[in-house]
């Protein structure tokens, strides 16, 4: 059962936002009484302005079983931006007793920052929540990071819904991203991908819809991507999306490969909610690496055909074909919310 949030006296408004001039001590002071709505605002403000303090506060809040759920959910989410054994330990503890509304955020954060201990805890989880998308994907994401092959995502998940590309596809314009551009936003990228270091070199950018995207490869691919890709599952790269509002780069898809012994390995593009949006394959032939991506999952993605190689010398992605079409199936797979009619007061 969820704990009801404390309510203020009738007619008394929750605060809109904290005054921008509040110093860090004043913001922290607002977190002393965690049952007041200001506490949630204070944690969000700390995260924005004093992220180091936010991490410690978030850990303490996640540990406090008496904290209102909405605040604990924010704290659990915040911990997913900071790698650290204490954070992982506290999230693992919360996994055992967090209410469903908080559990989703605990699992997501464990997936983002967790290692072997977190994976073991997620595997031990029981009850209906154990099979929830959040826990399933948290297990998978950690397993890919650890190179384990027991939580593979099957690209055939979207085989039944994938669409052929239009007769007249639109070329996707791909350009190199200067390393300096990646480094300029390195802090934001590290926050978004705290346990998945990505390389600045060899990145490409493209525009899909009205949004700018970058494809960044995992640092772990190193100088011998073929060897690493063939060996074991991994997070081979990510697609980042620039969000005009709030105004920063954030994750669009993880690019996961199912390496392990053969020359052709599966490639899946997965959102952080665990939804598979793209699928294809990577071919490893000696030191050469080529890839193709041709399956899509409407309404999350458009039909596309991507193909290319990872250059051996530079570690760059070079596309041989990159076209995108219009989704005919998206509207058919989009749900219409329930229309609300007049409610007499």
């Amino acid at each position: 059962m969820s704990t009801p949030e404390p309510r203020r006296p009738d007619g008394e408004e929750a605060p809109d936002q904290l005054p921008s001039g509040l110093d860090r001590d004043a913001v922290v002071a607002l977190l002393r009484d965690r049952r007041q709505p200001e506490a949630r605002l204070a944690l969000k403000t700390l995260s924005l302005r004093f992220p180091d303090l936010a991490e410690a506060q978030a850990r303490s809040i996640v540990a406090d079983r008496g904290t209102p759920e909405a605040l604990r959910a924010v704290a659990a989410t915040e911990l997913g931006y900071h790698v650290g054994p204490d954070n992982e330990r506290e999230l693992v503890r919360a996994l055992r007793d967090a209410p469903p509304t908080v559990l989703k955020h605990v699992a997501r954060s464990l997936g983002r920052i967790g290692g072997a201990d977190a994976l073991a805890a997620l595997e031990r989880a029981t009850g209906p929540a154990a099979s929830s998308p959040a826990l399933r994907f948290a297990r998978a994401l950690i397993a890919y990071r650890l190179g384990r092959d027991d939580h593979r995502i099957d690209p055939r998940e979207i085989a039944a819904v994938t669409e052929p590309i239009d007769a007249e596809p639109t070329p996707l314009e791909l350009r190199d991203v200067p390393e300096s551009a990646v480094e300029a936003v390195r802090d934001a990228i590290t926050r978004e991908l705290p346990a998945t270091p990505v390389a600045a070199r060899g990145s490409v950018r493209f525009r899909c819809g009205n949004s700018l995207h970058w494809v960044l490869l995992a640092q772990e691919l190193g100088d011998d991507p073929a060897q690493r890709l063939a060996r074991a599952p991994m997070v081979a790269g990510v697609v980042l999306k620039f969000r005009e509002c709030p105004g920063h780069w954030s994750l669009d898809e993880y690019l996961l490969t199912n390496g392990g012994g053969t020359g052709v390995v599966d490639l899946v593009g997965v959102r952080d909610s665990g939804i598979v949006v793209h699928a294809g394959s990577v071919r490893v032939d000696g030191a050469a690496v080529s890839f193709e991506l041709g399956a899509n999952n409407p309404p999350y993605s458009r039909p596309l055909e991507l193909g290319g190689v990872v250059e051996q010398v530079t570690g760059s992605i070079a596309f041989r074909r990159a076209v995108v079409g219009r989704s005919r199936g998206a509207l058919g797979r989009t749900r219409t919310p329930q229309r609300l009619e007049v409610v007499p007061d």
């Binding site: 955020h105 959102r271 909610s273």
Partner: peptide, 21 residues
């Protein structure tokens, strides 16, 4: 679970999954 958004990607999920024609 999209009533409590935990990431910007989840906001994309919501607007992708639902639409008024």
């Amino acid at each position: 679970g999209r009533d409590d958004l935990g990431s910007e990607g989840e906001a994309d999920d919501l607007s992708d999954e639902w639409s008024v024609p």
